[in-house]
Amino acid sequence: MSDATLVRPQAEFLRGVSMRDAGTLIGLVVILAVFGALVPGFFAERNLINILQQSSINACLALGMTLVIISGGIDLSVGPTAALSAVISASMMVAGVPFPLAIAAGFAIGLACGLVNGVLVAHVGLQPFIVTLGTLSTYRALALIYTGGNPVLGLPPGFRAVFNGSLFGLPLAVVIVACVAVVAWVVLKKTPFGEYLLAVGGNEEAAYIAGVPIARTKIAAYMISGLLAALAAQILIGRLGAAEPILGNLWELDAIAAAAIGGASLMGGKGSVVGTILGAVILGAMRNGLTLMNVQSFYQLLATGLIILAAMLIDRVTRGRG
């Protein structure tokens, strides 16, 4: 595509969205500046990389969550999906299955979990909140039953080396999530599927009349969310060297928070990949800074809550008549 001819309309096309993203970016800059002033060594390269690494899992989940939220739904089951995917691929590895195959199986589990969510929402017509609340318990129970509640230990070093490696001086996990983010951005901005997501979430009835494949679009969103939960699980068990059936507890809340801070509307039809990534980094940076300041975790929770509320208030005030 010749970018030169597109500069003007493209700039206009992106204007509405990037205004909101600019706001999220300002929020991130303010938070970084505050911690930079308060915490010595906050801006050290090592620490900045730490922040990215600590944000990467949440960012990965939040990207899938963003797509689901844009479609007008929500996925509360990402944590248990990750846990189920983690324990199954971990136990396959421990049993001697080559790890690429075990990872593929983990991804398949993620996709299957998403497929169940999607079919229940799109074909059966149940409400996304209730469906994924139900599968949240179900998938978690399956992970616990499968492992008898015990962690799967002793993952092969080859597998661990993959996720603990680095590329261009960045942890591989960060690079992987960055790639996922780029793909998600392209999907949302440049593919019919992206337009369909925005249309289905923005006005399902109108999208239907216009011939948008409603069910397929929704199911795909949940499957992507499940797949990214599985990817997050692989990153985590690669780092820890073990898979616990209780991993990923409350992940869904952080993912929703990142998406909402980034400008996704729980009413559907609105959301931004760039914003979600910034939202995840905001949460990560804040936790990192507070930890370095030795602030009790109670206050970290408080800060998370206040950030979400502040972001929503600013949203409300600036967009006003919405």
Binding site: L198, G202, N203, E205, A207, I209, G211, G269, K270
Partner: peptide, 18 residues
């Protein structure tokens, strides 16, 4: 409003939907 437009999307996106 209910069956025609996707309100938040641009004229172009609404036109291209079908």
């Amino acid at each position: 409003k209910r069956e025609g437009i996707v309100p938040l999307r641009s004229i172009t996106s609404n036109m291209a939907l079908a």
